[in-house]
Design a protein around this nucleic acid. Sequence first.
DNA 1: AAATAAAACGAACGGTCGTGCTTTTTCTCA
DNA 2: TGAGAAAAAGCACGACCGTTCGTTTTATTT
Lengths: 222, 222
Amino acid sequence: MAKPGNASSKGLQTKSAILDAALAIASRDGLEGLSIGMLAEALGMSKSGVFAHFGSREELQIAVIDEYARRFMNAVFHPAIGLPRGLPRLAAMFENWLHRVQTVEIPNGCVFISGAVEFDDRDGPVRERMVTVNRGWQGEMQKAARQAIDCGHLVPACDPEQLVFELYGVMLALHHDARLLRDARAVERARRAFDRIIAQHTAAEAPPARTRAAHRTASVAA
Amino acid sequence: MAKPGNASSKGLQTKSAILDAALAIASRDGLEGLSIGMLAEALGMSKSGVFAHFGSREELQIAVIDEYARRFMNAVFHPAIGLPRGLPRLAAMFENWLHRVQTVEIPNGCVFISGAVEFDDRDGPVRERMVTVNRGWQGEMQKAARQAIDCGHLVPACDPEQLVFELYGVMLALHHDARLLRDARAVERARRAFDRIIAQHTAAEAPPARTRAAHRTASVAA
DNA sequence: AAATAAAACGAACGGTCGTGCTTTTTCTCA
DNA sequence: TGAGAAAAAGCACGACCGTTCGTTTTATTT
């Protein structure tokens, strides 16, 4: 009998070929736009043949999320852990992230972003996987930020969760401006934003003046 | 004969009722998830009856974008122009924006965000309208920032486009964390981020130290 | 080479989709 | 109130969807 655990068995190798094509389609059209029919056509095989490898569309979507996350971490996170803790590692994570966004996510789309929008209000296992994977990445970023604080590279007043929140926002804005508005300057803006955020947490400085406090309550009027 | 221009004619008032329901559906399921079938069912009328009011699904999507933009500007932009130019007005725009995100976009979804992700790599009139509307809003923000610089509320070194890029990122991160991760602290983080961005452009200060310059080239390795 | 398990296929199912038609109902104005 | 237009319904179409099932082809092992 054929051993199902064999790494080069026919089944596993076509399954990974399917996953490859699925990733390309899901990047462009989102996880909801990924259909088994077009996937089969892109691979030159039958719908049922493709279907049998995953058992359901939902499991296919989850497999795509996992594979996308694996590649993301391989390209962005893992190379950075070779660098010394603290700011160097944190900066490398951002720079690797930026590089990946430039080379693959801006041209082809990003499953994390489209998936987040598609499933943020739809319960179920797909959404859960999205949340898990996202928390994983944000958690690694927060850990790196915490280490940078411990090393004295960032001031103790720096809040790692706030820092990651802002960095994530920079990437989302980059994705938005580069893909929807096709603004080539978005990459440079993302870099400048990162520099600004880091700079604010390196030099000791006065806490942000509450210049807005007076306007905030009055702003709703008129 | 019935005058088609009559504001209270039956046609126009059901058309606006359709638009109302379409907005609710598109907010949750995106413009691609908006189908004429469920729209008809939600309204208790036939598919063809709904369809006849717009002529095509694409025109319905465009009508939804326009209506969403109209409401957004009414809630966020127009109330702010009653305030004095400069930082007060800019801060009011952000605060009104934040208020709207909290009250309607986090609970119900945001057509601008889901639409941007859905149509950022699909050419056609829907995408074009998304771009136009988005540029319109970002343009108003930039104008307000420019006025704040002219008034001396923000330092001349402040780049309005960079500022709006970062503010947009804050809102995208808020939307992401609040909806996907269901993090209630996201709103407070967005406010803090705004304060920090503004604070950095109010007080004259040293240009951001290039602490990352050394790491940037080495970061890809390992 | 025969036996057996895995993989792929092909056809069909019930649904939903957007979109044309034609017909019926409803509104609006003279 | 009756003529006529506007609005809504009803119906059908072709296409695609995810999924199931039985069959056939291909791999793998004895």
